[in-house]
Design a protein around this nucleic acid. Structure first.
Lengths: 336, 336
DNA sequence: CGGTGAATCCAAAACGTTTTGGATTTTGAT
DNA sequence: ATCAAAATCCAAAACGTTTTGGATTCACCG
């Protein structure tokens, strides 16, 4: 009993009526609606997805393309996001398809395949870049999409991002409240939008406290941050706290401190950002910040669904509050 | 120029010929094939996915359902797997859709929705359970699927799993080679298939060395393992090495050792399994084992594609070698 | 009793492909 | 020049649904 035709036949009804009964049209009597419902349930009938998609002209699919940079796949954040978004899309009748593509030509081809093959009603773009070819391309099409992160590309689209600026202000203020005065910021390359925002947040808080900010740029990975912080910590005028643009950079700092015989947090406080799973396991556990994935996923889903439903509505920019998670790597500065 | 009809019209050809030209039938002359190709390329034509799926009677979709137990989503392994499988499915013309469901009724409903709505040509079942309702259900349908992990459910299906038994034998032998004699195994609950296999591997290696194995069962999480290992390590006859069924359990051991003032690896060697991202960041970095995700993903994809293509072929059970990753938590035992 | 409106139902078209089963033309051999 | 085979092409059917535009029946009112 797998097609609507068979179901209709077994009930002595027309295909039309069965279809409309299942779709709650006022067109069909309560009695027949009930009969159809029961029969459908009993026989396990479900409309063939391909047929309904063809007829309706929509795919009931949304897609997210994972950027898989240099073999390094898994920002674990993404799977949390996926898991969080999943139920919301299912409830709205959408399937979530997942593609992976390395940044570059291949990536744009992937987006073209989705758009031109009408393979999705909406797209989720993650880890926005300052000059983002994906966003530029999507703006030339009429495919609804939402962006996670901030980009310099202008245009009408919805986006969601953490308020990195405020988060780094708050974290800096927290260090100030603990008594720190000599706080250095380990910044990510300014090619990333988030890097500039976080840096601004830190510097604003320092200036507000009448202190002169000191930011040092490094690649946003463990090893470069390790090398840079080795210098900073071995120097004459050693800071009592280091606030890092990302957790991975903080790992580098932790390593450098250990190597120099500095105790964290007694001699040096360290803060990161992202709350990677590993950050709960470092020694000491890392104080960090995060955009709560469950909320974020839900919000991302609802932003996209809104874009799909009413494309003419003005897009929203949702800058969300970032949570500070205080763990073992922060404490008052050493008394000299 | 978005439908094949328009494309055909613009070329003065029939729909049939255009379709066949694009599909490399020998039916159409090299010249027209080239013309069609060029025109399709120029106009960015792609066949409407829904229409071709309807006509072909296949969805060109495979699905993986993430088990999201108690709010805890992200075994990071899954995103690595997804990223690794992605390109292989795309190359074969399949989209990968992702669903998330908590184990239980909801989970089976999700599977029914996929199967009855003909939403996928194949399904990937991950984290097999001993008595696995998903596998039992799928066996009653004719939907191709592959399983990751081992189950007690009998039947004809392909599966892929790490050779946990051999891995734990090898790891135990490694500890023996380092000079350890008093090695204890922290086992996961025997309700998990993998737990029994790993335990058997450990015990076999011990017996082969003429030693009496000592396994202690604990829930497969950090806190329970912490509590149990606190006892073991504080006891009179302290082992010199602890080999844990999972990394998370090993974290508990590390915590207990730190608390008792034991130095790892000088006083105690610790081994885990899974190679979670956090395991590279613990202090010391954890010696562990893993099923390489890139290979695994590729293999999983090809197993499923084989099932889809030739369902009548006998399914394969692929038990893959697990890699031992030696890091800082293992060393020779203390000399007394 | 005729007519009107509401309540139910349904036949047929349409969505955009792929595939079946020829039809037509060209080629090559005799 | 003729015929068979090969090379090209194409009209129409089919996939399973939703939707359009009525058709039919029934109750009710004047």
């Amino acid at each position: 009993m797998s097609t609507i035709r068979e179901l209709a036949q077994s009930l002595g009804l027309s295909i039309t009526t069965v279809s409309r009964a299942l779709d709650d049209y006022t067109d069909v009597s309560a009695l027949t609606r009930a009969r159809v419902r029961a029969a459908a349930e009993a026989s396990g009938y479900r409309p063939n997805a391909a047929a309904r998609r063809l007829r309706r002209g929509q795919t009931e699919v949304v897609t997210m393309v994972l950027p898989t940079a240099h073999g390094r796949f898994g920002e674990p954040l993404y799977i949390e996001l996926l898991a969080a978004m999943g139920p919301h899309f299912v409830k709205a009748g959408y399937d979530l398809t997942l593609l992976a593509a390395p940044p570059g030509d291949e990536e744009i081809k992937t987006y073209r395949r989705i758009v031109e093959g009408r393979r999705a009603d909406g797209i989720i773009v993650v880890r926005a870049r300052r000059d983002d070819a994906r966003i530029r391309y999507l703006l030339t099409t009429d495919t609804p999409f939402v962006v996670m992160g901030r980009s310099d590309v202008a245009g009408d689209y919805s986006l969601l991002d953490g308020d990195g600026m405020k988060a780094f202000s708050v974290a800096t203020e927290r260090l100030l409240a603990l008594g720190h005065r000599h706080i250095v910021h380990l910044a990510a390359p300014s090619a990333f939008t988030f890097a500039t925002l976080r840096r601004n947040g830190y510097e604003a808080a320092m200036q507000a406290a009448g202190l002169v900010p000191h930011s040092i740029e490094s690649a946003a990975e463990t090893d470069p941050a390790y090398a840079v912080s080795l210098n900073v910590l071995a120097g004459a005028h050693r800071p009592t706290a280091l606030i890092c643009a990302t957790d991975r950079m903080a790992y580098g700092v932790l390593k450098a401190a250990r190597e120099l015989g500095l105790s964290v947090p007694a001699d040096l406080s360290v803060i990161g950002h992202d709350n990677l799973p590993a950050s709960a396991r470092t020694d000491p556990a890392l104080t960090t910040m995060e955009l709560p994935p469950a909320d974020t996923g839900e919000r991302l889903a609802s932003l996209l669904l809104a874009r799909i439903k009413t494309p003419e509505a003005t897009p929203v920019h949702d800058i969300r509050e970032v949570r500070l998670i205080e763990r073992g790597s922060t404490a008052p500065p050493p008394t000299r």
